[in-house]
Write a protein that binds this DNA or RNA. Structure first.
Lengths: 134, 134
DNA sequence: GTTACTGCAAAGCTTTTGCATCCCT
DNA sequence: AGGGATGCAAAAGCTTTGCAGTAAC
């Protein structure tokens, strides 16, 4: 936690609760999900504080904001380069920590300076596949 | 246009205007952009009709709904498999029609049935790169 | 004639903002 | 003490919906 304070990130009890909830979290939660979980232990917590905290962490590079879900933004505390596998039915997201070497053919690059990439794999998870078969 | 009618898609003047606007459109427009362009020639056009039409085309597989932009959904009439290169500054999106062979290691697949993938390449376009230098 | 689309306005969600108060450093 | 965070409520965007009227098939 010290690293946050060191860069001038003020550690309030609310922020610590959010940080603890996110730590090692693999669910790629939405702000709403973060709010409802954190406010269990912290009833006075407000939505605005969750949004502010998530935005502050994102701006400082401690949190990725995923635009995978059209309905809401989801957050990923894993900031190491990785990709995602998404269930089209239940929107579950799992991490794919594989590195792929992807080159864009020169004639398609359009003079862009490439800084990164992100692969979304789509599919149906075992649980949803079984429910469909029913 | 006949193909739409053949599957029970009712062709109204408003829908034809939307279809004509989208045809060969490479700008990946948002619903707002579609609306403002189509309503130039069709002043009585309503937002709801644009949304309904886009959703109907999407549901029938004639239009891709992109979740690349966190702020709004964008639409892509190019339904052939392809990827995207996105300018992080101005959010311009250009098509990358290259095919990449991407395999997910078995132990990471989690029993998913994989149905497809989509790569987002990130970068800065020449125009934005120049403005930054200034 | 049916069925389904249009247009308008209102409502629904997610996310952002203003502002007074409070508290971490 | 000072700067920044909190909490509340209101507002702002984007998208969806209900419903009466209308047009495509």
């Amino acid at each position: 936690m010290k690293k946050y304070r060191d860069i001038g990130f003020k550690l309030t009890p609310q922020r610590i609760a959010v940080l603890e909830y996110l730590e090692n979290n693999k669910e790629h939660p939405s702000a709403e999900t973060v709010y409802s979980n954190v406010s269990k232990k912290f009833p006075t917590m407000s939505f605005a504080t969750v949004y502010n905290t998530l935005a502050a962490l994102r701006d400082r590079g401690y949190l990725l904001e995923l635009t995978i879900d059209a309905d809401k933004r989801r957050y990923d505390p894993n900031i190491h380069p990785h990709h995602h596998l998404i269930c089209k039915v239940c929107k579950k997201i799992i991490d794919i920590p594989t590195e792929y070497m992807l080159q864009i053919p020169e004639h398609l690059r359009g003079g862009f300076e490439i800084t990164g990439n992100h692969i979304e794999f789509y599919g149906v998870c075992p649980e949803c596949k079984q429910q469909r078969a029913t």
